[in-house]
Structures are given as C-alpha cells and as structure tokens.
Write a protein that binds this DNA or RNA. Structure first.
Lengths: 207, 207
DNA sequence: ATCCATTGACTAACTCGTAAGTCAGCGATA
DNA sequence: TATCGCTGACTTACGAGTTAGTCAATGGAT
C-alpha cells in the first residue's frame, strides 16, 4: 500500500503516531498500568523507538495530554457567531457545549484522565481549566447576564452561577464515561429535556 | 493509650482497619500505583499481615470498594419521610442528594474510582448502578411524575428524564473531585442556584 | 543509470529497580 | 508452654530506561 513514505516523512509522522497510540493506551489502562512497550506495539515498532522521541514515560504522558487538548479558540469563534434571541443563543451554546464536551471522545476521555491522574499531574488540570473551562463558563455567564439585562431572563440565583446551567452536559459526559454502552441513554431526548428545563427555569415569569 | 485490645479484638478489627487504609491509598494513587506495603504501613504493620486477610491485591481492591459503598436503604427511608408540596419534597430530595453524593467524601471518591478503574473492574460499576443510582433516579422520577399528575409541575421533556434534574449535584461532585481546593465554589450558592433553576423549570407556567 | 559510503531510524537484548506474593520463625498472649 | 498474629527476608516477575549493533534509505561520485 502506502509503503512509499520517505524517511523524512516517516520521521515527521512518528511523534503524532506515538501520541495517538499513547492516548489510546493511557485511556484504556491509566498512566501507571500502561506499558511503553504496548504503545510502541500499536505502531509495530519497539520501545526503543518511543524513547527516541520522548525522554520518559512521564514526558510521553504530558505530551499526550497536550496533543488531545483542543484549543478553545475554535469554540470562541462559534460562540461569537451565534444569532437570535437570548434563548435561541443559549440553546445553540448548550448544543455546542454538548458537541465539544460529551460528543467528542477525546475531550470526554480527557476528563477521565483528569479525574484519574490529576492528583499526580496537577498541571494538566490547570491548563484545561484556564484554556477550556473558564472561557466556556465566561461565555455562558456573559450570555445569561445579557439576557437578564434585556429582561428576557429573570434575575435569580441561577443567573449568577453559570455552572448549574451546563451541568447536564457534564452529567451526560460522565454517564457516557462510566456506562460506555452498558446503560445507554437516549441522548437527543436527554439534551432536549435539559434545554427545556433550563430555558423554562431562566425565562422571566409571565404571570 | 488504648493498648488494651485483646488479641481477639485486634483480629476482629484488622479487616476494617486494612480496608480503611486501602481506601485512602487507592484513592490517592489509583489501583496500579498503590503498593500493598504502603497500605500496611498505614497501620504500622507489614505487607504479610495484609495477605493474611486478603489473598491478592485485586481482592483487597474489590473488598475496599464494597466497604465504602453505603447501602441505599438509609436514603430510601429518608426519601419516604419527605413532607410538603411536591416542590418542597423535590427541594429536600435534591438537598439529600447533595448530602449523599457531593457531600460525602467516600461516595465522591468512589465515583472517581469508578471512572478511573471501572473498565478493569466492571462489577463495581454494575453494583453501584443497581444499588445507588437506579433507586435514586427512580425516587426522583416518581416524585416528578406525581407533581405532574397533580398539576404542580408542567408536562415536558424535563419531566421524563430525571437525570437532568439532578445533574448539578453530579457536576458539583466532579468539580470537587477535580479542583479539590484549587478553584473552590461557594457550595451553598451553587445548590441554591440549582434548586432555583430546577423548580422554576418544572413549575407549571402561570400565564 | 549504477555503485557504494554514510547516515540515522530502529531493534534486541541488556541492566536495574520495584512490587506482588510466600513462608519459616519469632515473641507476646492466654 | 502452646498458640497464633505477625514479621522480614526471600523469590519471582515485570517494566522503565539504555545501548551496541543493524540495515535500508539516501545522495554524491563515477
């Protein structure tokens, strides 16, 4: 097949290949139980090759985390492009959140690794927080504040804590991580229920 | 101090002591990185002692999980004792959920272990689901259905998916697991916001 | 176009440390 | 003194990290 890779091309691809393989292994086994040799075996190479590109297993792990951490900038652009009433935009924002968080396997498994290995690799948590979570919460908060200011959303405790508005997306993500395919949930209905609840909960009461 | 323990008493306590120590170690390091010798060291004994009570590290782990899994029966009783309108009872039920899930360190860390080790110990997930999650969801679902039937809650997607109603409790639990004390949240305000959102979202609209 | 010296990505077999599991013996208790 | 919970030194296996050596791609010379 495509055995036509020049040495330079192959070498350029190696780091990516290794990180992809490492991600699968770390997700499946966790950091401690993962063997560098198994990572290498996924590419059909040996341990030594991996050590040509990454000095230690620890460095490999941290590079792997960095490799799968999607930059938030793409999301930022999508958020700014939202149109319609505040309700419409919030709905779209939530759908976007589901897409990026529970819908994307990489991001989802990244959350698992944070929970499992975070205490031994604190910096992966700090990074994920400042690069992903904080901006997302800021966007939700800003949108809700605008909605309150315009009178579309009612003033209340919920409006000041954006976390409670996106909780169901976190919940679904955790659910999928734990019950991969054992106790499946109808995702479309779940998401619909969440949006229904949130919009009803935020809308200014018409008495 | 209390060196007055007879041999029989000491022996009777050992399993408990070991499981408590094992829990701390497994939570801190994860299954693979935990050393049986460190578990023993917490009690001031040696590895050999642990192996007198548990045949393998794996058996120790599973016993540890069983040891910290609180039976749901206590909660069941509390649920049945709830009083007041459906809103009142739902509020109390949510507070109870926070107490048992995010408030109780054991249950919280149990969730971490499920996420981290669940794929290698599937039975701990099945047990937790049937003994804790399913009954809790059933209780919430039943309460919401009653509320809908009585006209207090409005019929809608949210009413049929109890998961979305308790999501924030899951979210707070995850938050505490990841950001132990780094990015603290004002829990009281968070819970208040959640309840505010949910009750507003469920109440039948008065137009 | 063919040859050949050199490079360098990769391997295979090594060392070394560590951790699970074992067991003969010890010493406090009853 | 007999019991027995516990010890600590042992074996065994395994995995991280190392390194001398291999061989195919490469590119310059004829």
């Amino acid at each position: 097949m495509e055995k036509k890779l020049s040495r330079a091309e192959q070498k350029a691809r190696r780091p990516h290949e290794i990180l992809d393989a490492a991600f699968e292994e770390f997700v499946e086994k966790g950091y401690a139980a993962t063997r560098v040799e198994d990572v290498a075996a996924r590419l059909g190479v040996t341990k030594g090759t991996v050590y040509l590109y990454f000095p230690t297993k620890e460095a490999l792990f941290e590079a792997t985390i960095g490799h799968v951490s999607a930059p938030f900038e793409d999301v930022r652009a999508s958020i700014d492009a939202l149109q319609g009433s505040h309700s419409d935009r919030l709905r779209q924002l939530l759908l976007l959140g589901y897409d990026k968080l529970s819908g994307d396997r990489k991001t989802r498994e990244l959350l698992r690794l944070q929970l499992a290995e975070g205490s031994r690799f604190p910096n992966i948590i700090d990074r994920h927080y400042s690069e992903f979570i904080a901006p997302l919460l800021d966007a939700v908060r800003a949108l809700i504040e605008q909605g309150v200011a315009s009178g579309e959303f009612h003033q209340g405790a919920a409006a000041s804590i954006p976390e409670v508005v996106i909780s169901s997306a976190v919940h679904l993500t955790i659910w999928k991580l734990i019950f991969a395919d054992r106790n499946p949930i109808d995702e479309a209905t779940f998401i619909e229920a969440h949006i229904d609840l949130v919009l009803n909960g935020l809308l200014a009461r018409r008495r």
